[in-house]
């Protein structure tokens, strides 16, 4: 049973493993690395939004915090990567816990604004503490990730690292969703009152998921920082939070594959459109509009419906 459930991700893993051998082109490899990083961040946010039904417009802050934490520790203080990573996770989780405890009492648009404000405050602090973070000019010279003497110093190696992390987290997330916690989450999504009545500790659960999704974002940020070897406050920009949210909605909210699909589409689309120069923005906006208008469940739901219709037609004929 467990095997069948994990079959798609295993197939996906195999495909991901062979892909770079087929295209050893650094440009496409670089794009795939970014897609992987964004997919990790969206997976956490999707868990929070699609399953627990809580919105966050501040996730870019956690992404940046993760990147800055390992970046500063490894570049300025020569700490090894793994301890730095542990520190990054603890710091982000701690900050997320504080923000979560405070903000998650709010609902709907109020929660959106509160997370947005918290994220912006992080952005402003990263900008202003020049001595520590390098300020708006950013922090350069972040070393490559080194684990046990093996250095992930090329896009090729990094690609495997990013997608391995992605697959591990995917399986972890799938297990959470199919566990007691996952059922509690979905219950929370449809009705908080009912969830509380069923004996679910709503506040604790919400904060736990918020912290977990922040850690996903931080992991993605860590990978980003070490792959580009440079980080600036731009990564904690509100527009990036909005971009992550858009990826989920376009890909399919409440669907684990949705985040990946959205990340891939929203990363590839501007690349494909760059030939249109000044028209790029308007075409990009229009495509986004059309997808959201005609596939309100996101691309993933769209594919599912398509699959079911085809299946029905085929069966109907047989």
């Amino acid at each position: 049973m467990a095997f069948r459930r994990h079959l798609p991700i295993m197939l996906f893993g195999c495909a991901a493993a062979v892909l770079p051998l087929a295209l050893k082109d650094p440009y496409y490899l670089g794009i795939l690395v970014f897609i992987g990083i964004f997919s990790i961040a969206t997976m956490g946010l999707n868990l929070l939004m699609g399953y627990a039904g809580q919105i966050s417009l501040g996730h870019a802050a956690f992404y940046a915090l993760g990147a800055y934490a390992t970046g500063i520790l490894t570049a300025k203080y020569n700490v090894h990567f793994l301890p730095a990573l542990a520190a990054a996770i603890i710091v982000t989780a701690g900050i997320a816990y504080v923000i979560g405890m405070a903000c998650l009492r709010l609902k709907g648009h109020y929660l959106a604004v509160a997370t947005l404000a918290a994220g912006e405050i992080v952005f402003i602090c990263l900008n202003a503490s020049v001595g520590f973070t390098g300020g708006p000019s950013g922090l350069a010279g972040i070393p490559s990730i080194e684990i046990g003497g093996f250095s992930f110093d090329s896009d090729f190696k990094f690609y495997y690292l990013v997608w391995a992390v992605f697959i591990l987290l995917f399986i972890l997330t799938a297990n959470i969703i199919n566990s007691r916690t996952g059922r509690a989450l979905r219950c929370l999504h449809s009705s908080e009152v009912a969830a509380a009545a069923m004996g679910i500790n709503v506040t604790t659960l919400k904060v736990q998921i918020f912290v977990l999704s922040a850690v996903y974002a931080a992991l993605a940020g860590v990978l980003y920082g070490h792959s580009v070897t440079f980080i600036s406050p731009q990564a904690s920009d509100l527009m990036f939070s909005v971009k992550l949210l858009t990826m989920i909605v376009v890909g399919g909210m409440g669907h684990l594959w949705g985040g990946v699909l959205g990340a891939a589409l929203l990363t590839l689309l501007p690349e494909a459109l760059s030939a249109f120069h000044d028209y790029e923005l308007i075409i990009y906006g229009s495509i986004l509009l059309v997808i959201v208008m005609f596939l309100p469940g996101g691309l993933m739901r769209g594919f599912e419906t398509l699959y079911v219709t085809i299946l029905k037609k085929v069966r109907g004929r047989g």
Binding site: G285, L288, P296
Partner: peptide, 16 residues
């Protein structure tokens, strides 16, 4: 949420 993303797409189009 879909409507909100639609207005977001709208803002990108206006800006473009």
């Amino acid at each position: 949420l879909i409507l909100i993303i639609i207005t977001l797409a709208g803002s990108i189009i206006f800006k473009g």
